[in-house]
Design a protein around this nucleic acid. Structure first.
Lengths: 395, 395
DNA sequence: GTGTCGGCCGTCTGCCGACAA
DNA sequence: TTGTCGGCAGACGGCCGACAC
């Protein structure tokens, strides 16, 4: 597996766009958004650690030493953010360069305009189909859903019999793929024939994986893939032990925090259980300007199989440290929740405040003890320098 | 890419053998040896760092902080060593669990019998062939060199016309591969036909890669592969930045050294420029009981393309720290050398003392200033506790 | 509307000896 | 001794509409 070359094919403004941004976001999913370049963010080593644990398929060792000097959250400036795709698997990921703010900078932050992060702009003219056994078999081509073909593909010339055209689509690596698009059969349907099997075998697609076609404003056809969540699809790599990787991310963050220097992380939206680089304004709003209490009802967004979103409902069952030993007083996954729909096991039993929308109207189990935080935020102007000592888990 | 399951198919004594030891060593090459389980070794973070740099295809950042508490070499006990092969690429690697010795243990070490490490026992009944274009094309099978077939494969029944048999070989993952072995053509030759192309495509072999057949004492046929050194065959992985990986290996070693606890490393013999876990006795002999001086002639073993060894000759041109800033007073690559054969670029300009055989007879350029070490070893009993402070690069 | 299948044709896989390096 | 090729037969890839859910 190699890293992608950084194809700067569009967005010459250079803003965090290294390869096609629409396609990257479409592959990443509707819930993924990247903080703006230059903005202030909160970085959570815990969340980063979770991603590494998933990627290496190994939980963090209980023997792991603590980094006493590393707070549970670091307020940083985002100096660089680039989108990438693994050259072997097309898995999307982002590289971010973060610089922890010093005390003075954290004080000044509160006077800057809030930046909640740009919402992930999902393209409008696109479709995503989960591949069937017939789609991936060598016996035939790809059956295009009718509405999808009419919305996303250029219109066919129906004076021909049968109507057909050649489609050229580009993937995340800017590679070109050619397909014969034909409208035939009884009943009539849209099919991709010649060229399709080459694509399937090159990308090693199997039934259950999804493909994604985008027709963008420049009249280009873009093509992405999203692999099914196969168990054990992970890649631990024999480069470094998972323990050393966990230590490495902590050491990198601790060193950067101690010296106010930059460090680099990878964010893997499809692998990571939760985003761990959060826009500062979003964090502040959720942690300091939102009332939550045990018994309160909330909603949370999840991605569906068809790449759209739906809300699941739940009830807050507790508010406590998710890892009291290693990360005391961290807001990471500080909210214990129960989900209404009992298809349990899929959804995390713990979430962070900025992931949920509390429903202040009609609480199902009104708590007699509404509480905001164990350490309520001082009224008046927020002090982020103070936060680092008072509220951010510095031991 | 996934890690291999640990197939304990033989050597029930369980000594560092997790999958077939003969096959692993054959794939690793004739120069690779693993220290014995329980023995004392010297671990070099610098060498480990080199391996990570090669694997991530990224040199260590000059900004990298120093670990003041981490010596340039750690005397450890080897608690566990298991052989593995990458499930995707069949690349061989070893996992070792090391425990740094405390001062008391280091003192006691000198009274234990020396363990120079077992030499890599290359199997006797084996052959290794680099694949030709014809071998890997879909047009035909595999042409077996005559001597190889006669030495390694079971004898054919020449009463049949043509003589043929089915061969069953097992790879590092204990997967079974069946081949039709036939002796035919004009002139007569040994060929593998049916089954060969399945193997080639499953392992994604291309011309230039090598295959390796072993006929062991249990009359089993073993089958390994060794890929050509394709440039950029490396896999940086988007899990962790290379900077964090470098920090991680240093942090893991530093923490283990500080607490005398165990840590785990991966050794990748085909990727790593040099072994970085050396039997203690080999280290002591090379560093403290060998005279080297500028101008001295030496030999060093290298692997040939055909999986055998040859010696290259050279002259010592200097003795100095390879990284005076980060690792002062380290013996890692402390010897600057020039090579007789000017096919330069292939061989390292710096080697470590334990990699070379100094030729004490007939030095080509006798130096008027023979020197042993910048800090000569005190005569009498070696003190490894003292070494840690005096000679092992503690800043 | 679309997933899977039988039918059918064409290409490519893969086994053979010829031939030359 | 062995790498590559032309020849050839059979397997599979891949395009088609039928049909059912």
């Amino acid at each position: 597996m190699k890293l992608s070359a950084c194809l700067n094919q569009q967005s010459p403004e250079g803003e965090k766009s290294c390869l096609n941004s629409e396609l990257w976001h479409a592959c990443a999913g509707p819930l993924v958004s990247l903080p703006s370049l230059g903005s202030h963010v909160v970085y959570f080593p815990q969340g980063h650690s979770e991603q590494v644990a998933v990627s290496t398929n190994k939980e963090v060792d209980a023997q792991m030493p603590n980094y006493q000097s590393l707070p549970a959250q670091l307020v940083c400036q985002l100096h660089n953010v680039t989108m990438h795709a693994d050259i072997e698997t097309d898995e999307v990921y982002a590289q971010m360069t973060l610089q922890p703010l010093n005390a003075q900078e954290q004080k000044e932050v509160s006077f800057l305009p809030a930046d909640m992060g740009v919402a992930s702009k999902q393209p409008t003219n696109y479709f995503c189909k989960t591949l069937t056994a017939s789609d991936t078999s060598t016996h035939g081509g790809f059956s295009v859903p009718r509405r999808a073909a009419e919305k996303v593909f250029p219109p066919l010339d129906f004076s021909q019999q049968p109507p057909a055209q050649e489609l050229i689509a580009r993937d995340l690596h800017n590679n070109e793929w050619k397909f014969r698009h034909i409208f035939r059969g009884q009943p009539k349907r849209h099919l991709l024939t010649t060229g399709w099997s080459v694509f399937v075998s090159a990308k090693r697609l199997v039934a259950g994986d999804s493909v994604l076609f985008i027709w963008n404003e420049k009249n280009q056809l873009l093509l992405g893939i999203r692999r099914a969540n196969r168990p054990q699809t992970v890649m631990p790599s024999s480069v470094l032990s998972s323990d050393s990787m966990h230590l490495g991310l902590l050491a990198a963050a601790a060193h950067a925090a101690a010296t106010n220097s930059r460090f680099t992380i990878f964010y893997n939206p499809r692998a990571s259980p939760s985003e761990f680089v959060i826009p500062l304004a979003k964090y502040i709003k959720a942690v300091h300007h939102t009332r939550v209490s045990v018994g309160m009802r909330f909603r949370m967004l999840f991605e569906t199989e068809e790449s759209s979103v739906r809300r699941y409902m739940g009830t807050i069952t507790g508010i406590s440290d998710s890892d009291p030993v290693r990360w005391p007083n961290s807001h990471w996954r500080s909210v214990k929740v129960g989900w209404d729909e009992s298809t349990a096991g899929e959804r995390q039993p713990r979430v962070s405040l900025w992931e949920i929308e509390p429903l202040t109207t009609f609480p199902m189990y009104p708590s007699p003890f509404p509480l905001r935080l164990k350490r309520p935020w001082p009224s008046g102007l927020p002090s982020y320098a103070g936060m680092k000592i008072d509220d951010m888990g510095l031991n």
